[in-house]
Nucleic acid binder design. Sequence first.
DNA 1: CCTACCGATCGGTAGG
DNA 2: CCTACCGATCGGTAGG
Lengths: 195, 195
Amino acid sequence: MVETTRRREIEDVASSLFRERGYSGTSVRDIARALDIQGASLYAHVASKQDVLWAIVDRMATRFEAAADAALEVADAEPDADPGTRLAALVRAHVGVITDDVERASVFVHEWRSLSTERRAEIGRRRDDYERRVRTLIAEGSATGTFTEVDPVVAAAYLLTAINGIVSWYRPDGRVRPETLADAYADIALRSVSP
Amino acid sequence: MVETTRRREIEDVASSLFRERGYSGTSVRDIARALDIQGASLYAHVASKQDVLWAIVDRMATRFEAAADAALEVADAEPDADPGTRLAALVRAHVGVITDDVERASVFVHEWRSLSTERRAEIGRRRDDYERRVRTLIAEGSATGTFTEVDPVVAAAYLLTAINGIVSWYRPDGRVRPETLADAYADIALRSVSP
DNA sequence: CCTACCGATCGGTAGG
DNA sequence: CCTACCGATCGGTAGG
């Protein structure tokens, strides 16, 4: 599957450039240059610049969804599963997806606005669904007294923008280890809704 | 000062477009069209597209700095000034600057990367200074036992990305009132570092 | 603030 | 994956 690895290389390079300069600020030639091929040659592998963006964003959306599903499933399997455990598991999973691939994660967080109208709408829906899960989780914790009384909409916005904000500063070769970060963020998040 | 108001109109329109489509995704003609003038006519008022971006970003940087200064000064004047009061005041001030002008704030948060090398470096320094103040505040609270023991770097990153994240979802005509938001955010922020 | 215009670059296609 | 090429648009200038 030469085709597949080349596509992946293109996505890697594009993610990195999109993160640095944005989708509009990155030309097809920029991507090609990073791969040591001619601009027009890129079209042997992709249909359009837009398709590259879509591949990155769609893949990451799926990854976030899957990670949340898996984390909540595990958390629910534990005998002492409460909203706190669930929220911590969700945060840890979300942070893990980001640190595992900051470049694509950054494109997902910031560049989905450059998607074509329909694709943008789809991602908008999926983001809404995801955010709704977080809100529900917080609302449940609030209702049972595990969490303090907060506006779930505001608290979820605070939480999600904080976590997604990792894409703006995290570097894999930096001082902060992924595991440490996941723990610290789960900790802060939990404390921020504690009574 | 006709010149000044026209410049302000240009900045208003540019902020709105830069927020929606990004600096690279916005053309000089887009800005001109929103003002009902010809693309080239814009150059009667501004030297370059880059200068418009700089005007917006520089103005907002100054506003954030001034708001933080004022808030901390007031907080320190109170007899029971402790790190908690100071942090709450800082958060409220920061949120206030954002809700007061989400469009420019959004450009400040997201588009400063499109600044020319030197200007980008200057804003980088000023952002670092600002972030350092937040870290110090958190570290002081940690040391005196007002706050829990946290990594000030990680906690400050969490806090600042959460607050700046307001630019990604806040709408002046939305459900959430600016004052309510400032209170709620100060509350969550304080709780997130409480023992 | 306008018209007329500039060279450079854009995303993408044709045809190998 | 390359060369050659396309029309459209880019930021910006000259000269009123």
